[in-house]
């Protein structure tokens, strides 16, 4: 494993039935990095991300989070240890998954209050600050259904931030939003990147990958076929698959 990496993945493999989705994936993430994970649909980008936070079980390989093994050569730690390791990470989903029966404020304070046993007053105070940061301080009494998609996703980011994560995982956070709403979410993510939050972002937003990411992982059916700076990936793609993918996007 590499010294100083907050996430190290080695030989990660995963199949759904007979379909091999991930085959021998290796990469490292360093503290404060923003990593964009790009590539064609259906090559396991989301599955890769979900393995990191234990929403999917890897069949083989190792995942090391901040010096602790979540899975070592295909063997998982017990559920409690896994939960503890994963508590350092937050996740933002494509379809937000806010709790629809709770107000925005309750969506934010429920996990600090019931999981971390933080007292309600302090959780509420932090919620106010974080809501201000994502530009939704005036919506804390709203129900999720009263918000636009972009607002819901910003609340989802705020909810993840409430748990003070070391690492944030984003699974296509803007894919279900129209261009206008995408921007309000991307600008929050950009702000987080500037604050040196460690982020892994599965995305089809090439603009974001190009401008904000420190590093781009290009995933194809053969696994991670490029792990390089955005400049090199976008301007000097070495691999024909990447070249084709980049060109097809530029053509749009």
């Amino acid at each position: 494993m590499v010294e100083g990496a907050v996430i190290s993945v080695r030989g990660l493999s995963k199949s759904f039935g007979k379909t091999k989705v991930l085959n021998n994936i290796n990469f490292d993430v360093y503290k404060g990095e923003t990593i964009a994970i790009i590539g064609p649909s259906g090559v396991g980008k989301s599955t890769m991300l979900r393995c990191l936070i234990n929403l999917e079980k890897a069949d083989a390989g190792s995942i090391l989070i901040d010096g602790e093994y979540l899975v070592r050569n295909g063997h998982y730690e017990n559920e409690r240890t896994c939960r503890k390791i994963c508590s350092q990470m937050g996740m933002v989903f494509q379809s937000f998954h806010l709790f629809p029966h709770l107000t925005v404020l309750d969506n934010l304070i429920y996990a600090p209050k019931y999981v971390n046993r933080e007292d309600e007053a302090s959780a509420k105070k932090r919620a106010d600050e974080i809501l201000r940061k994502v530009g939704l301080a005036d919506r804390k009494e709203s129900m999720p259904s009263q918000l636009s998609g972009g607002q819901q996703q910003r609340i989802a980011i705020a909810r993840a931030l409430m748990m003070n994560p070391e690492i944030l995982l984003f699974d296509e956070p803007t894919s279900s939003l129209d261009p206008l709403l995408k921007n309000e979410v991307l600008s929050v993510m950009r702000q987080l990147a500037e604050e040196k939050m460690t982020m892994l972002v599965v995305t089809h937003e090439m603009g974001f990958a190009k401008e904000v990411a420190d590093r781009v992982l290009f995933v194809s059916e053969d696994g991670i076929i490029a792990d390089d700076s955005p400049d090199k990936i976008f301007n000097l793609p070495s691999n024909p698959i990447i070249k084709e993918f980049i060109c097809s996007i530029k053509a749009v």
Partner: peptide, 11 residues
Amino acid sequence: GQYEAAKVLGF
């Protein structure tokens, strides 16, 4: 998704 969101928050 509700179960997944709850799980990643540590519930």
